[in-house]
Amino acid sequence: MKNTLTRLAATAGLLVTLGLAGCGDDSAAGSTPSPAPSPAAALTIRDPWVKAAPAGTMTAAFGVLVNDTGADITVAAAESPASPMELHEMTMKDGKMVMQPKEGGFVIKANGTHELSPGGDHLMLMNPARAIEAGDEVSFTLKLGDGTTVPFTAIAKPYAGAGESYDPGMSMAPMGSAAP
């Protein structure tokens, strides 16, 4: 029995030694380190949804963009088979809140988030060919500044919100003031 235990201990020691030898720095052997994860793999969208709307009516998609990397990520564009798209923001002009294309895209800071919400930044569906009805699943692809893409699906929801409209020339009263 003692002889068997000695052999098992010696075998285990040999296996540990061989295993540790495989864990050493092999850069001298000419191998390359593993590449860092791509930005697309680290950008996700949490709670994505799209406002239900009739065919031909502008609408928008929302959610929270989450960047789990140590570097800023830029969303440069968005696409959907449901409609031509633009990245939009809300901004003050002449005392009114207006919607306009977002120049330079959405920048999601390192290890940060960026909210897409009604009355704020959003993914604009310019002219859906068919109605987007509550419960529909709509496919999107975000195009990042480095050329990579991030696909996601959003569920359509009915949403009246503050009565906002995504039609051209849309404006809203500033927060805290009454609409004219």
Rank of each mutant, 00 (worst) to 15 (best):
S171N: 08
A52H: 10
K93W: 00
S165I: 01
P158Y: 07
A129E: 15
P48Q: 05
G119F: 03
N111F: 01
E86G: 08
M172H: 08
N111L: 06
A131V: 07
E115W: 04
A71K: 14
L144M: 09
K93D: 00
P118Q: 02
Q100D: 01
V66W: 02
P33A: 15
P35S: 15
P101R: 05
A61I: 02
A110F: 04
S38L: 13
P101S: 09
A179D: 03
A173E: 02
F62W: 03
A78H: 03
G112P: 13
P84T: 11
E89I: 00
S83L: 06
G135S: 10
F140A: 03
T4M: 09
S31F: 14
G176I: 02
L87I: 11
H122S: 15
T148K: 03
G120R: 06
T44I: 01
G19E: 05
V150W: 03
A36N: 12
G161C: 07
E89Q: 13
A36H: 12
M58S: 14
D136M: 06
D47N: 15
A71S: 15
G19P: 00
E164R: 05
V98L: 01
T4Q: 12
L125F: 10
Y159M: 13
E137G: 12
H88M: 12
A178R: 12
A76M: 04
S34R: 14
T11S: 12
R7S: 07
A36F: 07
E137H: 13
D25M: 04
G169W: 01
S34H: 05
V16K: 00
L123F: 09
M90I: 06
I73H: 03
D136V: 03
P33Y: 02
P174I: 10
E89F: 00
A60V: 01
D167K: 11
A29S: 15
M58T: 08
A36W: 10
P84G: 11
E137L: 14
T69W: 00
N3I: 08
E137S: 15
A160D: 13
H122L: 12
N67I: 07
P81I: 03
F106D: 01
L15I: 14
E103F: 05
A156P: 04
G135M: 09
D25Q: 05
A61Q: 08
M126N: 06
T74V: 15
A77F: 11
A156T: 08
L5E: 13
A179C: 04
P39C: 11
M85V: 08
G95D: 02
M175L: 10
